Amino acid sequence: MGSFKGHALPGTLFLLVGVWHVWSSLFRYVSNPKAFRVRVWNPVPGFDGKLKYFELYLVVVGAFIDLCIELLYSTHLKFFVNGVLNPNHMNDFEHSGMLLMFFIFGVVSLLSEKTRFLPLPEGALCLVAATAFCAEYLLFYFHSTTHKGLEGYYHLLLVLLIGLCVLSTVAGALLPTSFPVDLSNGIAITLQGLWFYQTAFTLYGPMIPDGCQLKNDQITCPSVGSQVRGELLANFQLFALVFGVLVAVAVSYSFLASKYGDSDVRSLHAAQDGLDSD
Rank of each mutant, 00 (worst) to 15 (best):
P33W: 01
I219A: 00
L157G: 07
G49P: 10
Y253H: 11
M1C: 09
T199V: 00
I187S: 02
D273S: 11
I162T: 08
F79L: 05
L150D: 13
L183D: 12
F179E: 09
D66C: 13
M90W: 03
Y73F: 08
S24C: 09
F79W: 15
V265T: 06
L214H: 06
H76I: 00
V245P: 05
V265A: 03
F239M: 13
R39P: 02
Y73K: 00
N86A: 00
D217H: 12
E70G: 08
I104K: 10
V159C: 08
H147I: 04
P119H: 15
V30H: 11
Y57A: 15
G193C: 11
M101T: 15
T131I: 10
P176A: 02
F64N: 13
G193I: 04
P10W: 05
S25V: 13
A124C: 05
D262A: 14
M101A: 13
S184L: 08
L67R: 07
H7W: 06
V242L: 14
A250V: 15
P33L: 05
Q237V: 13
L15Y: 07
S252D: 04
L9N: 01
A250E: 11
L125I: 11
K50D: 05
L100N: 02
A8E: 09
G2D: 06
D182I: 01
L110I: 11
Q218K: 03
P121E: 09
G83F: 01
V251H: 03
L58M: 14
L174S: 10
L15C: 04
N235E: 09
G62H: 12
Q213N: 04
S31H: 02
Q237C: 10
A129S: 14
A129G: 07
L203C: 06
W23K: 09
P43G: 06
L194N: 03
